[in-house]
Amino acid sequence: MITLTHYLVLSGIIFTIGVIGVMVRRSALVIFMCIELMLNSVNLTFIAFSRYLNSLDGQVFVFFVLSVAAAEVVVGLAIIILIFRNKATVNVDEINLMKW
C-alpha cells in the first residue's frame, strides 16, 4: 500500500537533489533546470496532499505553479541569452554581476 508518506519522501529526495544541483553546477542553464526540478517536487507534494485530503485545491494550485513556471522560464531564458550575448558564457562563477 502506497501512503502519503511515500510520496512525501520521494518529493523530499527530488527536492534535495535539486538543491544540490543548484549549489554545485556552474552552468546557469542547468541551475535553471534544477530549479524546475525543485518546483516539480513541490508540485508532487501538493497533489499527494490533494489526493489524501480529498481536496482539489492542491491541484488547482499546481496549475498556477505551472503557469508561473512557464512565465519564469520564458523570461529567465531570455535573460540567459542576453548574458551570453554580453559575456560569452553562462557559467555563474564567471558572471558574478550581483556584487557590491
Binding site: 510520496y7 508532487l44 490533494s50 489526493r51 531564458l77 541569452i81
Partner: peptide, 30 residues
C-alpha cells in the same frame, strides 16, 4: 505519479507544458 494520484488533468498538462513546451525551449536555448 500524478495519474497514480488520480490527478489526470495535471498529468496531462505536465506532459504538455513541462515535458513539451518548457523543455523544448530549454533545448532550443542550449
Amino acid at each position: 505519479l500524478y495519474i497514480l494520484l488520480n490527478a489526470h488533468f495535471i498529468a496531462a498538462i505536465q506532459i504538455l507544458v513541462y515535458a513539451g513546451a518548457i523543455m523544448v525551449l530549454f533545448l532550443f536555448v542550449i
